[in-house]
Amino acid sequence: MTVDLAGIPLSHEVLVASGCAGTGPDLQPYTPLADFGAVVTRSITLAPRPGGPLPRLVESPSGLVNALGLPGPGVEEFALRELPDLCATGATVIVSVWGETPAEYAKVAQRLRQADGVAAVEVNLSHPSGAAPDPAAVVHQVRRNTAAGVPVLAKLGPEALLATARACLGAGADGLSLVNAIPAVPMTTTGPALGAVVGGLSGPAITPIALRAVWQARQAFPDVPIVGSGGILTGPDAARFLAAGATAVAVGTALLHDPSAGRRIMTELADLSATDPGAP
């Protein structure tokens, strides 16, 4: 089903969530990236980053906690190599961006502005301390350094959702992406389970929280495009996000469990009847 996301036409309402397609082509053999409405890249930073110490990914009941540390080649290498490879698959590419400061976000956006194939920019506003210090300033910087026809989406966590969303929309965000992984500290019986100690919880464990965020944002901002995500494993899960008010949905953790999940979720969504008996 086609959908309009802040002015960009998507061929389908199911997207790949940021960070869950590797560099992109890794996922291609299991579900063609062009079949998704769009692929949101891992968060691209100004300089190359090696990622965080191991362990980076642990299980939690019905969820995963990751502290990958945003590994990546930096925006220059991304723009020269990864982005063209992604575009060559026929996928619509939404580039996630991250920086230590608003100025760093701005430089990443400036470099992306010179590249072909960026359909939209998603601003990753998560931070090791929980959230970027000044989300509105970050969004403002990204918006003013991004071409007018390229939407900017603010990806937020559930904390202080409406106030943060209002500030980001006021700073120029064209839409919201809800929700980011939720800060979490998984422990073993002897100490932290993650090398970085603090990670982000994703998967079905956060689905009701994510649904609440989408629903709450939809009530507050009736006309704002919203990408919903948080533990979507099945077509009915995706339908619940759409019912809560999402314009489109992003699948993430499911792809780490089953790289072919995207194709299955799209098929299940298409097969769903208008009434979902399993809806919460």
Binding site: D26, G51, L54, L57, N66, L68, P71, L256, P259
Partner: peptide, 25 residues
């Protein structure tokens, strides 16, 4: 141990010295 199976998650990186002498994850 635990893997994504599609080489997308980067949770299993290790430091390896390349034949060019440069170490990479």
């Amino acid at each position: 141990g635990l893997v994504c199976g599609a080489a997308t998650c980067t949770a299993c990186v290790i430091p390896v010295r390349g034949r060019d002498g440069v170490s990479r994850m």
